[in-house]
């Protein structure tokens, strides 16, 4: 019988493997250890290879791989409980501005993180009425000084 020593993989290979995982796995694996948390927290979407398609209940980031001309669509799980659907209003590098029945959410589809933007919208108003015109008024701004 061969004596097989348990070997661990070097970090660059492990991180290469993690880089192939969907956002939901990455969010879960932030709980593995501190190094992984730090690595996974700083991951960002590449700006040039993702296009976000969406309908009221479905968000699909589409990867265009220029070299192989294949298109891969992956369904994302919206991190919040939704009663009546949601709508993507804007997107930027995998960061989505989403409106749903309880207000606005900034959703990072890469890490699975999200932040409610409660000051923008009063959830007492009817969601369906609001969403029909609201997309004309909101978009992304970018502040170079804070990279935000």
């Amino acid at each position: 019988m061969m004596n097989r020593i348990k070997q661990s993989l070097p970090d660059h290979i492990i991180f290469g493997i993690l880089g192939r995982l969907p956002g939901k796995s990455l969010a879960r694996f932030k709980c593995v250890c501190k190094l992984w948390y730090a690595f996974l927290s700083q991951l960002k979407f590449h700006t040039d290879d993702k296009v976000i398609l969406s309908s009221d209940f479905l968000v699909q980031p589409v990867n265009f791989e220029a070299s192989s001309s294949t298109i891969k669509a992956v369904q994302l799980d919206f991190p919040l409980k939704v009663r009546s659907g949601f709508k993507v209003i804007g997107s930027c590098n995998g960061l989505l501005l989403v409106i749903y029945d309880e207000g606005f959410v900034m959703w990072n589809t890469w890490t699975g993180g999200y932040e409610r933007l409660s000051s923008l919208y009063n959830p007492a108003e009817n969601y369906l009425d609001v969403k029909s015109y609201i997309e004309y008024y909101f978009g992304f701004g970018y502040d170079h000084s804070t990279d935000d």
Partner: peptide, 13 residues
């Protein structure tokens, strides 16, 4: 720390 993180990313579990 771990319990807090698991709460924060509850949906991913």
């Amino acid at each position: 720390e771990e319990a807090n993180l698991r709460r924060e990313y509850e949906w991913a579990f």
